[in-house]
Amino acid sequence: MSAARVVAVSRDSEHRFSKPNADEIQLLAGIGVAGDAHAGVTVQHLSRIAADPTQPNLRQVHLIHAELHDEVHEQGFVVAPGQLGENITTRGIDLLSLPRGTVLRFGEQAVVEVTGLRNPCPQIDRFSDGLLKQLVYRDQDGDLVRRAGIMSIVLAGGPVRPGDVITVELPPEPHLPLERV
């Protein structure tokens, strides 16, 4: 199996659903992606600001695995990196199975800590009708399954570029499962 890598990086200075790809993004410790509308110490997602603008921002960097794009493509959906609002698109790592507190290192400097699951929103169906059902649904046991990526906070700043190797450091056991943040 080849090493986990960054496929694409994306950012947008405005609160739009999709984010354009970039040659590089700069992570800022405790803040998020430089130049991204969701960067900040406190919540930056508009719905979270409306609820309580003083909440800590546990959603500084959004990651999605490119394998999800492959899976939904098999169902007839076309989704490219950045189009679901992620900052970092990965390949070769099962992001959704990582425990809370996992540390991901990108290249030589940038480090994030996984905080939880992205909660898919209705904007996904406005992007592509029917896609939301692919990203959030109830399994055979009635449990809610969220597949729209994971959220993280920045521990150490630095550049992140397509092709960067991703190193995974699991937290001490017992591992806590990812929950919606």
Score class of each variant (00 low, 15 high):
92 G>L: 13
130 G>S: 13
155 L>I: 08
129 D>K: 14
120 P>G: 12
161 R>V: 06
121 C>L: 06
129 D>V: 13
122 P>N: 09
136 V>T: 15
111 V>T: 15
128 S>I: 09
138 R>W: 04
124 I>E: 12
141 D>L: 05
138 R>Y: 06
90 T>N: 15
149 G>L: 00
94 D>M: 07
158 G>P: 07
110 A>H: 04
130 G>D: 14
105 R>T: 07
117 L>I: 00
115 T>Q: 08
144 L>I: 13
129 D>Y: 14
113 E>A: 08
142 G>C: 03
90 T>I: 00
158 G>R: 10
136 V>K: 15
108 E>V: 11
118 R>D: 07
133 K>H: 09
132 L>F: 05
111 V>W: 09
142 G>Q: 11
113 E>Q: 10
122 P>L: 12
156 A>T: 11
158 G>S: 06
87 N>P: 04
98 L>R: 10
160 V>M: 04
102 T>Q: 14
109 Q>F: 08
104 L>W: 14
155 L>T: 03
132 L>V: 05
111 V>Q: 15
156 A>V: 06
110 A>C: 02
156 A>S: 10
136 V>C: 15
128 S>Y: 04
105 R>A: 04
100 R>C: 13
115 T>H: 04
132 L>W: 01
90 T>L: 06
104 L>C: 11
153 I>H: 03
162 P>N: 07
149 G>A: 02
157 G>M: 09
90 T>M: 09
143 D>N: 13
139 D>G: 05
111 V>M: 12
160 V>H: 08
101 G>H: 11
101 G>A: 12
146 R>I: 01
122 P>W: 07
149 G>D: 07
156 A>I: 08
134 Q>A: 12
138 R>P: 00
106 F>P: 08
141 D>S: 09
145 V>H: 02
137 Y>T: 07
145 V>E: 10
144 L>E: 14
140 Q>S: 11
142 G>Y: 05
95 L>W: 07
102 T>R: 06
141 D>M: 00
87 N>R: 01
162 P>E: 05
160 V>R: 06
117 L>P: 09
89 T>R: 03
150 I>M: 12
97 S>W: 01
95 L>R: 00
146 R>C: 08
112 V>G: 06
123 Q>C: 08
142 G>L: 04
140 Q>Y: 07
89 T>K: 02
128 S>M: 15
159 P>D: 07
126 R>Y: 10
154 V>L: 00
121 C>K: 03
157 G>T: 06
158 G>K: 09
155 L>E: 02
